[in-house]
Amino acid sequence: MLELRLVQGSLLKKVLEAIRELVNDANFDCSATGFSLQAMDSSHVALVALLLRSEGFEHYRCDRNLSMGMNLNNMAKMLRCAGNDDIITIKADDGSDTVTFMFESPNQDKIADFEMKLMDIDSEHLGIPDAEYHAIVRMPSAEFARICKDLSSIGDTVVISVTKEGVKFSTAGDIGTANIVCRQNKTVDKPEEATVIEMQEPVSLTFALRYMNSFTKATPLSETVTISLSSELPVVVEYKIADMGYIRFYLAPKIEE
């Protein structure tokens, strides 16, 4: 028996919108820790890891560990039927091949339930080692989204370079080149507007902008984004989800052949 009641149902709606472009089908894993997902994109260069901790749910019952295979586009279709202020409850019985999403309006005058078929998904689970990153950049998520969008109109890849001076996003294409430098800026009115760079050593890596743009679909989840870089390691683009957890995107760097 599984019953997860999320008062801020809009968070789940936003999570689905953030990942459904990257991943078609995925297993949601439910355990005492929380509701989580790990899935790779079809070309195996990007990975999404989601955690919504059990403490973030108003009611969290998970009698035994359960893995539920879902088509994310179908799940998003159902969750779009929930109002932004609705409370969402996810329910499943042991051994069932369906999951139920229940939507309650804030004043309880409308209650809807949507039952979705589950699917068997053979997913690879990757062990992600803890890494020491050469540079960690925290910046406003909207700014990062704007940069990725702007650069993708010029080129296909972005070079992210971190130095003491700041973080530089560069691209090149048929029509020309573009460089955007964001300097460390801690003296702002609100902490979420700051750009903060923690650098052990300079790092410069190249990534496909198509994936970066896909990651920025998570922008509505968090006002800030954290980009962790190390030479020859996948970049981690992390959006914190309120007090509940995170959504992390890993992307392998491009290498010269």
Partner: peptide, 14 residues
């Protein structure tokens, strides 16, 4: 030209 590395070359399979 440059190619994108596969994540499996960084992360181990569980």
């Amino acid at each position: 030209t440059s190619k994108q590395q596969k994540l499996s070359s960084f992360f181990s399979h569980k």
